[in-house]
Design a protein around this nucleic acid. Structure first.
Lengths: 200, 200, 200, 200
DNA sequence: GATGAATGAGGTTTCATTCAT
DNA sequence: AATGAATGAAACCTCATTCAT
C-alpha cells in the first residue's frame, strides 16, 4: 500500500502539472518535457506513471468527470417533491459546479476547451459524456414530471440539454474572469431564474 | 474576375474537403495529404490556395462565423416592441441556426468540437467569439428591457450567455442525429419554452 | 536567324536578371519565379530558354569565363621581350579585369562568391577554371623565363597561382566598394608593385 | 564537466562528419540524414547537438576561423624590427596555415569553396571575415612601415589583401593535391619570394 | 526508481519542372 | 510562343516513446 499510495500521489502531481500546462499552452503544443520540467523531474519519469500522452489527458478528464459526478451525486434526483425543493436543489448543484471549476479554472478550461478537440476519439468520448450529464439532469426533470411539480408535456431530453448548456456557457464565461468565485452567486441566480421562470 | 473567381471556387472546394476531413478525423490527425487525396489533387496544390494548415482552419471557421453573423444580422435587435414579436424573432433565429448547422453537420462539429482545442491561439479566438455572440444576444435582450417587455432587473449578460448556451447544447446534440433537420422544430420549441417560461 | 537571334537576346536578358538575383539573394535562395518576376514574364517561359536552374548558372558563369578569356586573349603571352613590356602588359590586363568586374559587380560576386559553392559539381568546375587561368598566367611567366627577363629559377606554377590570387582578393574587396571603378588604378598599382618588386 | 564534456565531444564528432560530408557532396546536396548515416546515428540525434543545418555549418566555419586566428595570433605583429625577422615570421605563419589546412583538406575545401555560397547571409559573413584577415595582415605590414623596414609609400590595405589572396590561391591549389603537406615548402617559398622580391 | 540520450515515424512545406491551354 | 496551375520529390525538423545506465 505505501508504494501504491506513493504512486497515486505521484500520478496526481503529474496530472496536476499536465492539466495546468495543457490549459496554458494547449494539448498539442504541450510536450511531455514541458510537464516534466514544470515538476523538475526527468521526462522519462513521466512514463513510469502514465502509459503515454493521451493517457494523461484521459486521466485528468476522467478525474474531472468523477468530481462532476460527485457534485451531482450529492443530491438525489428522486428526493424532491415540490418545485421549491427542486429549485433549492438546483441552486445547490449549480453552486457546487461553480465552486468546482471556479477553484481550478485550468481544469475547466481543459475540460471545456483545450481538451475538446485534442483527439478525435476523445471528442467522441466528450460528446458521449455530455449525453451522460444530460441524462442525469433529465432524471431530475423526470422526477418533477412524475411528481407533478413540473408540467407533463415538458420535453425532458431537450430541456435537460438546454439546462446543461446554460451551465456550460456560464462556466466558459466565468473561467476567463480573474476572480471566478466572486461571480458564482450572480450566475447561479441568473440561470436559475431563466430555468424556472424564463426571461419574461 | 475569371482567374480570381476560379481561385475562389477552388479555395471553397478545398475548404469544404478540409472541413469534412477535420470533422471526420480531427484536426491534428488530418494531414494535408488526406485533404488533397479526398479531392484527387496533389498535396502541393493545397499550398497554392492556402498558406498552411492553420490557414485553412481559420478560413473555414471564419466562414462559419460570417454565416452565423448573417443569420443573426437577418433580424434587427431593436425592431421588436412586444414579447410576442420577440418570441417570433427568437424562433426565426433559432430555426436559422439549426438549418445552418443541420445542413452541414461537419461544419458544426468542426466549429464546436474538433476545432475548439486545435490550437491554443485559436481557443482564445473561439472564446472571444462566444463573447461576441453573447453580446449580440444581449442586444436583443437589452431591447426588451428598454422597451419594457422584459423585466428591468433581468441580468442581460448572464441571460445572453445562458440562451446561447442552450442553443450550443442543442446543436451539439443534433449534429450527432442522423437526420438533424427533422429535429429542428422540437429543439426550437423546447428551448423557446424554457427561454420564455422556464421549465415550470 | 531572326528567330534564333531573338532567342539569343532573350537568353541574355534572362541570364542578366538571373545573375542579378543570384548575386542579391544567393543561388539557392533564388527561385525561378523570382527571376521571372524581375523580368515580368511567366516563370514557365524561363524553361523555353534554359533547360533548368543549373543551366542558367552555368550559362552565366560560362559567359563570364568567356569574357575573362577575352581580356586575357587581348594580349599575346609570347609577344613581350622585356620586363618593361611585360609590366605594361600586366597593367593592361589588370585594368581590363577590374573594368570587367567593376562595371558589373553582381557578376563578380556571383562568380567569386555566390556561385562557388552553389553546387558540388560546379565547385569542381570552378576549381578547374582557376587552374586554367593559372595556366594562362603561367604562360606569360614562362615566356619571361624563356626570354630571359624573368629569373630561370622562378616557380612558374606557384607564381601564376599567387598572381591570380592577388587579383582575386583585390576583386573581392572592390566589389563591395560603392564605386569600384574609381579604385581600379590604386589596386592595379598596388598589385603590380608587389608582383614586380615585392613589398620591400 | 562529464555531461558537458561528453556533449562537446559529440558535437565535435558530428561537426567533423558534417564537414567531411559537406566537402564531399556540397552543403546543399548534403542532408542531415547523410551526416547521421556517416556516424551511424539516428538523424534525430543530430538535432540534440545542433539547432539546425545552418547551425552546424556556422559551427564548423567558426571553428576554422578560431584556428586560423590562433595561427595568426601565435605571432606578434609588432615584434619584428628588421625585414629579415619579418620574412622569417611570414614563413612561420605561412607554414602554419598550410599545415592547418593540409592536415584537413576537407575543412579547407569547406571554408574556401563549398561553404562560401551556401547561404547568402553566410557569404556576407565570409567576406567580412576576409576583411578581418586582411586587417591582421595589414597590421604586420604597418609595423614594417612604422619601423622603417618597409617603404613608407606601401599601400598597406591593398598589399594586405594581395598577400592574403596569394595564400588563398595557394591553399586552393594545394587541397586538390593528393599529398598537400609535401607541397608546403614549395608554396611557402614561392609566395615569400614574390612577397619580398617580386617575380623579377 | 529515475533519468535523459537516442531514435525515427510522421508531417509540413518548398519549389523546380511539366504541360495543357 | 507564353503562361501559370498542378505536381510530388525531397528535405527539414519535432517530439512521443524506449531503454541502458
Amino acid at each position: 500500500m505505501p508504494a501504491d499510495d506513493l504512486t497515486q500521489r505521484r500520478r496526481r502531481e503529474i496530472a496536476d502539472a499536465a492539466a495546468l500546462t495543457f490549459a496554458e499552452q494547449g494539448y498539442h503544443a504541450t510536450g511531455i518535457a514541458d510537464i516534466a520540467q514544470r515538476l523538475g523531474i526527468g521526462h522519462g519519469t513521466f512514463y513510469r506513471y502514465f502509459k503515454n500522452k493521451r493517457d494523461i489527458l484521459e486521466y485528468v478528464l476522467d478525474e474531472v468527470t468523477v468530481r462532476l459526478g460527485e457534485v451531482l451525486a450529492a443530491e438525489d434526483p428522486t428526493s424532491t417533491t415540490t418545485l421549491e425543493e427542486y429549485r433549492a436543489q438546483v441552486e445547490r448543484i449549480g453552486t457546487g459546479l461553480f465552486q468546482l471549476f471556479g477553484d481550478e479554472p485550468a481544469i475547466a478550461r481543459l475540460f471545456y476547451v483545450e481538451g475538446v478537440g485534442a483527439d478525435h476519439e476523445f471528442s467522441e468520448k466528450w460528446m458521449d459524456l455530455q449525453g451522460a450529464f444530460a441524462a442525469v439532469t433529465g432524471a431530475y426533470l423526470q422526477n418533477g414530471v412524475d411528481r407533478g411539480f413540473l408540467p407533463a408535456d415538458l420535453d425532458v431530453e431537450v430541456s435537460a440539454r438546454a439546462v446543461n448548456g446554460m451551465i456550460f456557457a456560464a462556466l466558459l464565461a466565468v473561467i476567463r474572469d480573474p476572480d471566478p468565485a466572486a461571480e458564482t452567486e450572480r450566475w447561479v441566480a441568473g440561470i436559475t431564474r431563466i430555468m424556472f421562470a424564463g426571461i419574461a
